[in-house]
Amino acid sequence: MRALVIDDSRATRAILSRILQQLGFTTSDVADGQLALTWLADHGPVDLALVDWNMPVLDGLSFIKIVRANPAYAGMKLLMVTTESDIERMIAALEAGADEYAMKPFTAGVIREKLDIMGIRLPGYPVAGGVQ
């Protein structure tokens, strides 16, 4: 499975990429939503994108809206990973097309649980709660 990590923080990109790689993903990362759109145009859709909200050039919410408007990316799962904790922001992200929402700071366990909620089943990893 392929994942794209989109965050303006190099450290956050590295942490999320490492978590996803430990779960069996092949990862790529970019620093903003516009770079992510360019990456997708060049490499095609991924199985999963982890998207920060607050980024320069093109923010995460705008990225999600653009991706959801493009039928070529209909199968992509989108997880918003952000410091934005207001319920209004969470609702806006989900209404725009995010599949799930995780708040920073996060743990590997939180990311894993969100993937389970999103229906992403990884070979060799039992579903959270022990039911497969």
Rank of each mutant, 00 (worst) to 15 (best):
E113I: 09
D86G: 02
D29I: 11
T82R: 01
Y101D: 02
L61P: 05
T107A: 00
A93Q: 08
G129P: 08
M76N: 04
P71Q: 11
Q21F: 00
M1H: 07
E88R: 14
V46Q: 14
V81E: 08
P105V: 01
D47T: 13
Q21S: 09
L37N: 01
I19R: 00
D7A: 05
T12H: 12
L115P: 05
E88A: 15
V110I: 10
Y125E: 07
E95N: 14
V30Q: 09
A69P: 05
A3N: 12
L16Q: 12
M118V: 00
G24W: 09
A96K: 05
E100A: 09
D7P: 10
T107L: 02
K114H: 11
I19E: 02
V46S: 12
V67H: 00
I91D: 06
G33M: 09
S85C: 08
A98D: 00
G97D: 03
T38G: 01
I91T: 12
V81N: 09
A69G: 13
L48D: 07
D29L: 11
L4D: 12
M90T: 05
A31L: 04
L35G: 15
A102V: 15
P56H: 04
V81C: 13
K77C: 10
L23M: 15
P123C: 00
Q22F: 11
M103Q: 10
A92S: 14
M55W: 11
P56C: 03
G33L: 04
Q21L: 00
V57K: 15
R2L: 03
K65W: 03
P105L: 01
P123Q: 02
V81H: 08
R121K: 11
A31T: 09
D42N: 14
K104H: 06
M118W: 04
Y101R: 03
T26Q: 14
I15W: 02
D8T: 06
I66D: 10
Q132F: 05
I19F: 13
D8A: 04
G24E: 07
T38K: 05
V30G: 14
Q21H: 02
L20R: 09
P126H: 06
E100F: 07
I91C: 01
V110H: 02
N70P: 03
Q22N: 15
L58F: 14
K104P: 03
A92L: 10
I117W: 10
Q22C: 09
L122N: 03
T12W: 06
S17C: 11
A93F: 06
F63Y: 14
A108G: 06
Q21D: 10
A72I: 07
L115Q: 02
E100M: 02
K77F: 01
R68H: 10
G60A: 14
A92Y: 07
M90P: 00
A14K: 15
R121G: 03
D47W: 01
M118I: 02
P71M: 07
M1C: 02
P71I: 07
